[in-house]
Design a binder for these strands. Structure first.
Lengths: 200, 200
DNA sequence: CTAAAAGTTTGCAGTGACTGCAACTTAGTG
DNA sequence: CACTAAGTTGCAGTCACTGCAAACTTTTAG
C-alpha cells in the first residue's frame, strides 16, 4: 500500500532530482552545491543525503524498474527467438520508460554531455545491469554463467542502447528512440556480418 | 634530454602511486588518506595534488603510452588484414607493457576488485582510448568517423581486454596474458558466428 | 482519543578531498 | 656566481559527505 508518507518521499526525491538537473543544466555541475539543490527543493542539506549518497547520484538517478527486470524479461522470451530480437523485446519496456520520462531524460543526457565527469557513473550503472544480463544471456545460449561471450554480448547491448540514447538526445528528442535502438542493433548485426566475410 | 629534475619527478610519481596502491591494498581505499599516502612517499600532501588530480587517479594511473598509440598502430597495419587480427597486433605493445609492469598491474587490479568504486574510472579511461580507436576502425573499414559499428567494435575490444585483465589478475598472474586476450577475441569471433547462424 | 512506536527531518560537529595563492627551495644556464 | 625557471610547501578556504542525537510527524494500538 502507498501511504501518505511514501508519497511525500517520492515527491521530495523527485524535487531533489529535478532541482539538481535544472541547476546543473543552467550553471554547470561544479557551480552548483548540494546546499543550493536542497534549498531549491526546500529541504535541509542533510536531508539531501538521506536520499542520495552523492551529488552525482541525484543527477544520474537510480535505474530502478518496479516491474520485472530486463534480465527476467530476457529469460521469459522463448529460447528459439534469436538473441538480438529477444534482447529488443526484453528492452522494450525500458525504452518506453525513457520516452515516458522524456523531458527528464533529455535534460539528463544534456547535463551528462556537458559534464563528462558524470559519464563514468552512467556507464558503471549500465555495467551493473549488463553483468546481470550476461548471466541471462549465458543461460539462453546454454553457456556457463561467467562465459566470455555472454559478457561481451551484454556489454555490446548496453553500448548500443547508450549510443542510441546519445543520438536521441542530440536530436533533442526529435528522432524516434525505439527506431534508433533497432537501428543500432541492426547496424551491429550487419557490421558483424561484414566483418565475418572480410575475416574469413 | 632527461635531466635530474625529470628523473626526480618520475621517482616521486612512482613513489606516490606505489604508496597509494600498497596502502589501499592493506587497508581498503577509504581507510587511507591523501596525507598518509604523501607521508609514505615523503612529500607534502599539497605536492600529491601536483601529480594527481584526485586520490583515485593515483591508484588507476594514467594509461600514457610514450610511443605511438593503439590508434596509430591500428592505422599502420595493412588494410587487408581483417579487423580482429589487426586489433591484436595493435594491442600487442600495450599487453607487453602490462606484463612488464606485472607486479603493479596485478596489485592494481586487486585493489580495483576490492574497491568497486574505482571501476567506473577504469572503464572511463578505457572509454577514452576506445573512442579514439573507433575513429581508426572507421577509417580502416571506409566508414564515416562517427559510425555506429565502429564505436561498438571499439567498445567490444575494450571490454575483451578488460575481461582478459580481470581473469589474469584472478589467476594471480599465473595465466598467460596474451593468450587470454587472444582467447577473448577468439571466443568473441566464434560466438558472433554462432549468433549469426541462429539469427538468420 | 491518546500514548507509545516507528519513521523522517534537521542541526551540529567533524573528517577529508581538493584549490588558489604566495613564499620558499632547488636545479639548470650563461 | 648570479639569474631564472621549475618544483615544493604551508595556509586558508570551500564543499562533499558522515555519525549522532534531538525534534518532529505519521502510524499503530490500546
Amino acid at each position: 500500500m502507498l501511504t501518505r508518507r511514501d508519497r511525500k518521499k517520492q515527491q521530495t526525491k523527485a524535487a531533489l532530482m529535478s532541482a539538481a538537473l535544472r541547476l546543473a543544466d543552467e550553471r554547470g555541475l561544479d557551480h552548483v552545491t548540494v546546499e543550493e539543490i536542497s534549498e531549491a527543493a526546500d529541504v535541509s542539506p542533510r536531508t539531501f543525503f538521506n536520499y542520495f549518497a552523492t551529488k552525482d547520484d541525484a543527477i544520474i538517478g537510480e535505474q530502478i524498474a518496479d516491474g520485472p527486470s530486463v534480465c527476467d524479461r530476457l529469460l521469459a522470451v522463448p529460447a528459439e527467438v534469436p538473441l538480438i530480437p529477444a534482447m529488443l523485446e526484453a528492452l522494450a519496456p525500458e525504452i518506453q520508460q525513457f520516452q515516458a520520462d522524456r523531458e527528464i531524460w533529455l535534460l539528463r543526457m544534456r547535463v551528462i554531455k556537458n559534464n563528462p565527469s558524470l559519464l563514468p557513473l552512467l556507464v558503471a550503472r549500465g555495467g551493473i545491469a549488463e553483468r546481470e544480463s550476461a548471466g541471462a544471456i549465458a543461460t539462453r545460449l546454454g553457456l556457463p554463467a561467467d562465459d566470455y561471450f555472454a559478457l561481451l554480448a551484454a556489454t555490446l547491448t548496453g553500448t548500443a542502447v547508450r549510443a542510441a540514447m546519445m543520438r536521441w538526445a542530440d536530436s533533442e528528442g526529435h528522432d524516434d528512440l525505439p527506431q534508433l535502438v533497432r537501428e543500432a542493433f541492426g547496424v551491429l548485426a550487419e557490421g558483424l556480418n561484414t566483418q565475418r566475410k572480410k575475416g574469413d
